[in-house]
Simulated scan of single mutants.
Amino acid sequence: MIDSVLVCDPDDGVRLLTMSRPGRRNALDKATYVALAAALASARDDASIRVIALTGAGLCFTSGNDLADFQISTDAGETFVALDFLKMLSTFSKPVVAAVEGFAIGIGATLLLHCDLAYAGRGAQFRLPFVPLGLCPEGASSYLLPRLAGAKRAAELLLLGEPFTAQTAAEAGLINAQTDDGEALSVALAKAKALAALPWEAVAATRNLLKRSFALNVAETLEAEAQSFEALRRSPAAQAAFAAFFAR
Rank of each mutant, 00 (worst) to 15 (best):
D3M: 05
S4I: 01
V5R: 06
V7W: 01
D9R: 10
D9A: 07
G13E: 11
V14A: 08
G23T: 13
L28N: 01
K30Q: 14
A38N: 15
L40Y: 03
S42T: 12
A43C: 12
A53F: 00
A57N: 08
N65L: 15
D66N: 07
L67G: 02
A68Y: 13
F70D: 05
G77I: 06
L89R: 02
T91A: 15
T91V: 00
F92E: 06
K94A: 06
P95D: 08
V96D: 09
G102D: 05
G102M: 08
L112P: 00
D116I: 09
D116C: 11
L117N: 12
A118T: 03
Y119P: 04
A120C: 06
A120I: 03
A124E: 05
A124L: 01
R127D: 01
L128N: 08
L128P: 06
F130V: 05
P132K: 15
C136G: 12
S141M: 00
S142I: 03
S142K: 13
P146G: 07
A151M: 13
T165M: 01
T165P: 04
E171T: 01
A172C: 06
I175A: 12
Q178G: 03
D181M: 15
G182Y: 10
V187D: 02
L189P: 03
A197W: 09
P199S: 10
W200S: 08
E201W: 09
A202I: 12
A204L: 13
T206M: 13
L209Q: 15
F214M: 04
N217S: 10
V218L: 05
T221Q: 09
Q227N: 09
Q227T: 11
E230T: 11
L232H: 06
R234N: 12
P236T: 11
P236Q: 10
F242E: 01
A243H: 04
